[in-house]
Deep mutational scan, measured.
Amino acid sequence: VTLFVALYDYEAITEDDLSFHKGEKFQILNSSEGDWWEARSLTTGETGYIPSNYVAPVD
């Protein structure tokens, strides 16, 4: 499982989006939707859509 880490803070715009803070880690559930990925936060356990350009793979 490839994990991703937030590079910036993000505040949800719609109820389907997931708010997060810089440094938060995610498991990507679906990355086939283009620039918005469905993800689960490993910090909160919540799922929602995140902007793919706000995250990077964890080394």
Results as ranks from 00 to 15, higher is better:
residue 1 V to T: 14
residue 1 V to G: 14
residue 2 T to Q: 14
residue 3 L to F: 09
residue 3 L to R: 05
residue 3 L to C: 09
residue 4 F to R: 04
residue 4 F to N: 02
residue 4 F to I: 04
residue 5 V to N: 03
residue 5 V to S: 04
residue 6 A to G: 04
residue 6 A to N: 00
residue 6 A to E: 01
residue 8 Y to E: 08
residue 8 Y to N: 07
residue 9 D to H: 05
residue 9 D to I: 02
residue 9 D to Y: 04
residue 10 Y to V: 02
residue 10 Y to Q: 02
residue 11 E to K: 10
residue 11 E to W: 10
residue 11 E to P: 04
residue 11 E to D: 11
residue 12 A to L: 01
residue 13 I to V: 14
residue 14 T to V: 07
residue 15 E to Q: 12
residue 16 D to T: 15
residue 16 D to P: 06
residue 17 D to W: 15
residue 17 D to F: 15
residue 18 L to R: 02
residue 18 L to H: 02
residue 18 L to C: 02
residue 19 S to I: 02
residue 20 F to Y: 01
residue 21 H to M: 11
residue 21 H to R: 14
residue 22 K to F: 05
residue 23 G to Q: 02
residue 24 E to H: 06
residue 24 E to L: 01
residue 25 K to H: 13
residue 25 K to M: 15
residue 27 Q to S: 08
residue 27 Q to W: 13
residue 27 Q to T: 10
residue 28 I to D: 00
residue 30 N to L: 06
residue 30 N to A: 08
residue 30 N to S: 11
residue 30 N to I: 06
residue 30 N to F: 07
residue 31 S to Q: 14
residue 31 S to M: 14
residue 31 S to L: 10
residue 31 S to R: 11
residue 31 S to H: 11
residue 31 S to N: 13
residue 32 S to W: 10
residue 32 S to M: 13
residue 33 E to Q: 14
residue 34 G to I: 11
residue 34 G to T: 14
residue 35 D to F: 13
residue 35 D to W: 11
residue 35 D to H: 12
residue 36 W to Y: 11
residue 36 W to H: 08
residue 36 W to N: 06
residue 37 W to M: 06
residue 38 E to H: 14
residue 39 A to K: 00
residue 41 S to Y: 02
residue 41 S to E: 03
residue 41 S to I: 06
residue 42 L to Y: 06
residue 42 L to R: 03
residue 43 T to P: 02
residue 45 G to T: 03
residue 45 G to S: 05
residue 45 G to F: 08
residue 45 G to M: 08
residue 45 G to W: 07
residue 46 E to F: 11
residue 46 E to G: 08
residue 46 E to R: 15
residue 48 G to L: 02
residue 48 G to C: 02
residue 49 Y to N: 08
residue 50 I to R: 00
residue 50 I to G: 00
residue 50 I to A: 01
residue 50 I to P: 00
residue 51 P to H: 08
residue 52 S to T: 07
residue 52 S to H: 08
residue 53 N to K: 14
residue 54 Y to W: 06
residue 55 V to L: 11
residue 55 V to N: 00
residue 56 A to G: 09
residue 56 A to S: 09
residue 56 A to R: 10
residue 57 P to D: 04
residue 58 V to S: 07
residue 58 V to F: 12
residue 58 V to M: 12
residue 59 D to A: 12
